[in-house]
Design a protein around this nucleic acid. Structure first.
Lengths: 225, 225
DNA sequence: GCGATTTGTTACCACTTTATAACCAGTCTG
DNA sequence: CAGACTGGTTATAAAGTGGTAACAAATCGC
């Protein structure tokens, strides 16, 4: 599990890096925003820790840029009391924040919680629910005993979200956010299309969905018998 | 999602209550510490907002008592600069704090972030009162052992409000405000219609309401035996 | 760079939900 | 008692939602 840390405070960078390494994470360090963005594209980390005050490009800019291309979990490091910064960060799509100063214990707990929420903790191997088996590595689903079906990136991500909460309805807004990131918020058409395409692939009769059902006015859910 | 607010400043209590209600939370209000603790046991809220300075029992005491029996997320309202208070609150088990004064936008952002962190944002399951079971995720109600009935957004919202204060009459004005927001205020027809439609769905004989009853001249209430 | 795949955009239709209006019966009030 | 008001009902118009198709734009693999 790779984590990118960006902070211009060298001591803090060292401390955070050490703490995370001790807990078994692979750590990538950046001491300014530009470097952070370069390393992000280059390394594709599973989680990003951003200080707001940085030279080069500040935390907001980096967060916004990352959100343009990815839905990776982002945690911001904030200075206690800077309310405006905090709200701005959350609205830009940051998933959580951590007030400085913080204890290593807190850091680990929050990082783990965030990874868990993003459904990334388990890692390898296919996830299953009911008659569905999703393999995120191969980008395939298998329905019952049928042959595995190839999925596109977005289709896989949608199914991942639905599968992670199998049996429960997930709101359209939430799906939009999780699949497309911050930018996609509000565009229902995207979701309509994606659902349509996924149904073509996994339903035996796409016009009468048995697995990926609509909860009118609410969202979609994966039915597991 | 139920939130308990405790603050002795009546104006602030009103503002916070209104803000949260607008965002779809069910709000329980207390203006002193003793009341807060009583309502906590009684209502079992999903998040607690505590002012530190309160008559009865102050925020610290309330927070400590709550922590004896629950791990519910607690957010403290603090006065900027009172570092001592802040540290004490966090040591007592508060999960976050908010400096006064704060904007409604900040409040919402922080409350949501805290709920997210606590892993409560998604399906906290259906809320129940009497023979009614309301599932806000799926937008359905179940009356007794009948099949669940689908609700529209507004219907669900109305029932959420009534259910959150089951057994108590809620004034028409308040319902209008909470379901439609600012703009709907004053239009009784909207509410008449909505009540009518909800009764068609949940009452066995809609012309003789057993559950959603009228309090003439006052408002409506949900009867729980 | 080229063809194939994937993703985004626009449009249309059927259907549901919400808003608006009108009518009726009962109650309250001067 | 008349007139104003309230709440319930019905009918209809306006707005919104979800499914589908066709096509354009972007991206990927070679």
């Amino acid at each position: 599990m790779k984590i990118l840390i960006a902070d211009d405070d060298h001591d803090l960078l060292g401390l955070i890096g050490f703490t995370l390494t001790q807990s078994g994470f692979a750590v990538i360090r950046a001491s300014d925003g530009i470097t952070a963005l370069r390393l992000f594209s280059q390394e594709g980390p599973d989680l990003v820790l951003l200080d707001i005050n940085m030279p080069g490009a500040n935390g907001f800019e980096v967060c916004a840029r990352i959100r343009e291309q990815s839905t990776v979990p982002v945690m911001m490091l904030t200075v206690r009391g800077e309310e405006e910064d905090l709200v701005k960060a959350l609205e830009l799509g940051a998933d959580d924040y951590l007030n400085k100063p913080f204890s290593p214990r807190t850091l680990i707990a929050r990082v783990k919680a965030l990874l868990r929420r993003a459904g990334l903790e388990a890692g390898a191997g296919p996830i299953a629910a009911g008659r569905l088996q999703l393999d995120m590595d191969e980008h395939t689903v298998r329905v019952g005993t049928h042959e595995p079906v190839r999925l596109t990136k977005l289709e896989a991500r949608l199914l991942q979200m639905l599968l992670a909460h199998a049996g429960h309805t997930i709101s359209s807004d939430r799906l939009l956010m999780q699949v497309w990131g911050h930018k996609g918020a509000g565009d229902r058409q995207l979701l309509k299309q994606l659902v349509h395409r996924v149904r073509q692939k996994i339903e035996s009769d796409p016009s009468v969905p048995q697995l990926l059902q609509t909860a009118p006015g609410a969202g979609y859910k994966l039915v597991v018998e």
